[in-house]
C-alpha cells in the first residue's frame, strides 16, 4: 500500500462546513469523486454477488464427473485441461521470459540498441488483442506447422501472450536486487553465471512469482486466443497434440448455446474463485516484496 497522505491542512467539521459553504464548487467535486469510487466498488460487488449467489446453488457433484456428455455437461475435463494448459504455457514462457530479463538486466550494456528494440516489441505484444493472437496461432501453429487444433498450439499462443508480462516483472525484480550482492559474489570469485543463478535469481524470486501468477490469471481467463488454436473438444486430452477445451471456453460455449445457463453460472463461480485466489496470493507476495 502506498504511504498515507498526511493532511497538512487538517480541519475539524466546523471549519470544513465553513470552507465548503464559501466554495460550493469544491463540495460538488468532493461529492463527484466519492460517487465515482462508490460506483466502481458497487459495480464489482454487484457482479461478484450476482454470479456467486446465482451460481453456487448450481454447483452440483454431477459437474465434477470425469465424463463430459450432452446430458451432463461436466466441467471437470475442462478444469483439468485448464490446469494442463497453464502448466504447458508457463513451461514455455517462463524460462524464455526470465532468461530474456536476465540478458536485459545483467548482460546488456547501457544504450544497447537491442534492448530498446526488445522493449518496443514487448510493449507491442502487450497491446495486441487476444483474437489477433488466436488468428496468428491458427495461421502459424495450427496450419503452417500442421499441429492441428491442439493443446500445444494453444499453449504456444498463450506463451507468446504472457511473455511480456513475465519479462517485465522479472526485469523489475532483477533491477531491485542491490548491486552489493553482485559485487560481493564477484568479490568471492564467483563467475557471472554462478552469480546469476546462486545469488541474483533466488533473491528475485518473489518478483518473478508475481509475474507468473499474473500470467496464470490471464491464461485461465483467456477465450478468444484459444478458440481457433486449442479447439473446443470437451474431453481429457490423450496427448499434447489433441484438442482441449479450457474452462473459459467451456463457459462461453455453454452460455452461447443457451441450453445450460445454470451450468454456465456454476462455471462462472469456479472461474471467479480462481481469480479471487490468484488476487489473494499476489497480494500476499506484493506485501512480502515490500517488507523486503
Amino acid at each position: 500500500m502506498p504511504e498515507a497522505i498526511q493532511p497538512i491542512n487538517a480541519q475539524n467539521m466546523k471549519q470544513r462546513i465553513k470552507s465548503y459553504s464559501n466554495s460550493p464548487g469544491s463540495l460538488i467535486l468532493a461529492v463527484l469523486v466519492g460517487l465515482a469510487a462508490l460506483i466502481t466498488v458497487l459495480t464489482l460487488v454487484f457482479i461478484l454477488g450476482y454470479i456467486l449467489v446465482k451460481g453456487i446453488p448450481n454447483l452440483s457433484a454431477d459437474l465434477f464427473q470425469l465424463e463430459y456428455n450432452s446430458e451432463n455437461v461436466s466441467m471437470f475435463p475442462s478444469i483439468i485441461n485448464t490446469i494442463l494448459m497453464t502448466l504447458l504455457s508457463l513451461v514455455i514462457a517462463g524460462p524464455l521470459g526470465i532468461f530474456a530479463a536476465v540478458y536485459l538486466v545483467e548482460y546488456a550494456k547501457k544504450g544497447n540498441k537491442l534492448v530498446s528494440v526488445v522493449r518496443v516489441t514487448a510493449e507491442t505484444l502487450t497491446g495486441i488483442p487476444s483474437i489477433v493472437y488466436g488468428l496468428f496461432g491458427m495461421l502459424f501453429f495450427v496450419t503452417t506447422l500442421k499441429w492441428g487444433y491442439s493443446m500445444l498450439a494453444g499453449a504456444f499462443t498463450l506463451a507468446i501472450m504472457v511473455l511480456p508480462v513475465i519479462m517485465r516483472t522479472t526485469e523489475e525484480a532483477l533491477l531491485a536486487v542491490p548491486d552489493m550482492y553482485r559485487e560481493a559474489s564477484f568479490g568471492l570469485g564467483a563467475g557471472r553465471l554462478r552469480t546469476i543463478f546462486v545469488v541474483i535469481l533466488p533473491s528475485a524470486i518473489p518478483g518473478i512469482l508475481s509475474g507468473i501468477i499474473l500470467s496464470i490469471g490471464r491464461i485461465v481467463g483467456e477465450t478468444a486466443a484459444l478458440m481457433y488454436t486449442a479447439g473446443t473438444v470437451a474431453e481429457l486430452p490423450s496427448s499434447v497434440m489433441s484438442s482441449a477445451r479450457t474452462l473459459s471456453l467451456h463457459m462461453y460455449t455453454l452460455a452461447s448455446e443457451g441450453l445450460h445457463i445454470d451450468k454456465a453460472y456454476a462455471t462462472a463461480v469456479v472461474l471467479l474463485l480462481v481469480v479471487l485466489v490468484i488476487n489473494w496470493i499476489s497480494g500476499r507476495i506484493a506485501r512480502k516484496i515490500k517488507k523486503g
Binding site: A37, L44, I47, L48, Y50, K54, E222, S248, N279
Partner: peptide, 27 residues
C-alpha cells in the same frame, strides 16, 4: 477505505472477459 478499494480495482481487472460477457448477457 483504501484497503478495500484497491483490491476491488485489482479484482475488476482480474475478472475474465467471458465472465463479464456472461454477466452482461444475464443482467
Amino acid at each position: 477505505i483504501y484497503r478495500f478499494v484497491k483490491p476491488a480495482v485489482d479484482l475488476l481487472a482480474g475478472i475474465p472477459s467471458v465472465v463479464y460477457g456472461f454477466f452482461g448477457m444475464v443482467v
